[in-house]
Amino acid sequence: MSESIQSTYGVAQDDGLLATKDLKKYFPVKGGILNRKVGDVKAVDGVSLAIEEGKTLGLVGESGCGKSTLGKTIMRLHDPTDGNIYFDGEDISDAGKSRMRKIRRNMQIIFQDPASSLNPRMSVAELIQEPMKTLTDWSKEERRDRTLELISEVGLQEGHLQRAPHEFSGGQQQRVAIARALSVNPKLIVADEPTSALDVSVQAKILNLLSDLQDTYDLTFLFISHDLSVIKHICDDVAVMYLGKLAEVASTEEIFDDPKHPYTKALMSAVPDASAESMTDRILLEGDVPSPENPPSGCRFHTRCQEYIGEICETDEPQFTEPSAGRYCSCHHYSGST
């Protein structure tokens, strides 16, 4: 059990390398003739978590649960609606452009689809050097040397440098994106579904590369994915997200051995596994994920929950509790003193 998890519930400013406290990101919904705001999509609705330096926190959930928005808000690509983001003990939730530029040297992001995250009109060399140009005061030679070093670290060749991104396969493009994120020696990397657009055999290579780089550079990862098997492979701790809120947080080992939240259980049971023989005790969720514009009252999962207790699930929002040491779960099953 890592320190980061123990402090998740009452996150403090200097917990781990990155911490968020009650972070919210709403997107306005406009409508009507006057294009007035008619509501909010509560993409991230009060998330507190912390990642200890050198660790990998997996953020898992289905599409629309807000996990990518959370990643981008932490990167300050979106401005948070409410709450705090602490990076290295510093509150960056309302940092201005010039302050963010200094901070971005230490936090970088890798996106899901390398084909769209690389500017098609730039060469590989320009792409990799872009963060160094804007975020460091390195000389041309230093940037060049660093580029060559990175190229070999991520498994590309020097001859690739002058080519355009579309000349590469998806796996190679993702290597370019990784090299770019690494170029300024950041401490934290937000990896937003970095292998979802890739074939499985390529995925394995990229996952191995990320682990190697984590060892070399002592990197901290926020690893966002919908794929539980990938999460299990690469993460130290796991946070499960549902409709803008965290459902459960625990170490990888514990959460996979003994999932507590009914949603976590259903999610795990839904993963098709070639080696699993019988599917008889599979939990099948009813219906679809409700809209984050108008989330269900009380526990957001109650409309699909297979362990629904009663009215309390519909009326009261469950608090994040610690059903066993170091494990956090927001479910009325554990709200008493279980």
Binding site: S211, S229, M268, D273
Partner: peptide
């Protein structure tokens, strides 16, 4: 064989995933 090995599994833990060299 290589293809099924390269998929991370929920049942087992490996440090490194076996990969298929080349393209």
């Amino acid at each position: 064989r290589k293809l099924s090995e390269s998929i991370p599994s929920l049942d087992s833990t490996v440090d490194r995933l076996p990969t298929i060299e080349g393209q």
